[in-house]
Design a binder for these strands. Structure first.
Lengths: 139, 139
DNA sequence: TATTATCCTACCATTTTAGTAGTATTAATA
DNA sequence: TATTAATACTACTAAAATGGTAGGATAATA
């Protein structure tokens, strides 16, 4: 349902969320830690930066950091930046059946958009800490 | 957001909904009326039949009819049959970030599924009758 | 049995997705 | 200021998905 860009992008943001305030982390390190193609992840990071989800510091010692806390980032923003599908137009002209189908599907897409806007990456972080806690039991 | 298969399939169902009880309509006629590629629409009709959305009568004088009223057909069923994307698995294993992202996206997909289940094709039909009424004003 | 219509298999072109390569640009730091 | 470490950009490629086509097999009816 979601392209790899989405999965990778979310893993990048999750990794960045563990960063101390004011610090930056390079994509090369994230790509290695997360076993994601460096070049592919670079492109994702650029997209997230253009969408003001992350800040960048170029040059040596640079990298990315979250531009705002996870709970202020909605999944909607991420999908718009990394999924493309959502913003391509649905025709609401043509024959009567075409118009009806177009408007019908548009209303569904709007509902879906509302759903995505209500979900923030704080929830993602909750899943993440659950995972880490479940490891604790083995220690 | 939705592939043409979805648009075409919905237009087919909308056309069939105008059929008198017990009657069948061939895809060739629908394809012509709706300006949709015959062969493509044939494949869509077969998929809808396999999903028990339409009944078929083969041979001369045959064609398709709705298997149940529009208000008993949820968009979820149609998406499952014509969109594919929804049923491909989301991995919830691997590293902790992979698990977290997998479960997170899975929960979103479940919410989306619930949304689709609540939408029936009755709503589509409402959009359609609205279109037809708006034409009345010109007469 | 001739006709009409669905059904099935295989194929093809275009677009999207995922990934790679090389190089230009920027900024810290030695 | 030269070196180095990092992002940014452009172009390319392989594989998969999407949209569509062709031909014939199958089934049912008139």
């Amino acid at each position: 349902m979601f392209p790899k860009k989405m999965h990778y992008g979310l893993r990048l943001l999750l990794t960045l969320s563990g960063l101390a305030e004011g610090n930056y982390l390079g994509v090369a390190e994230v790509a290695e830690r997360e076993n994601i193609s460096l070049k592919f992840l670079e492109a994702i990071a650029v997209a997230l930066r253009k969408g003001h989800i992350v800040n960048v510091r170029r040059g040596a010692g640079g990298g990315y950091q979250l531009a705002k806390p996870l709970k202020e980032i909605s999944l909607y923003e991420i999908v718009l930046l990394l999924d493309e599908k959502l913003d391509k137009t649905i025709a609401t002209d043509g024959s009567n059946t075409e118009k009806a189908v177009g408007r019908f599907l548009l209303s569904v897409r709007n509902d879906y958009g509302r759903l995505l806007r209500r979900v923030t990456l704080e929830k993602l972080h909750n899943y993440f800490t659950e995972e880490n806690e479940s490891i604790m039991y083995y220690i």
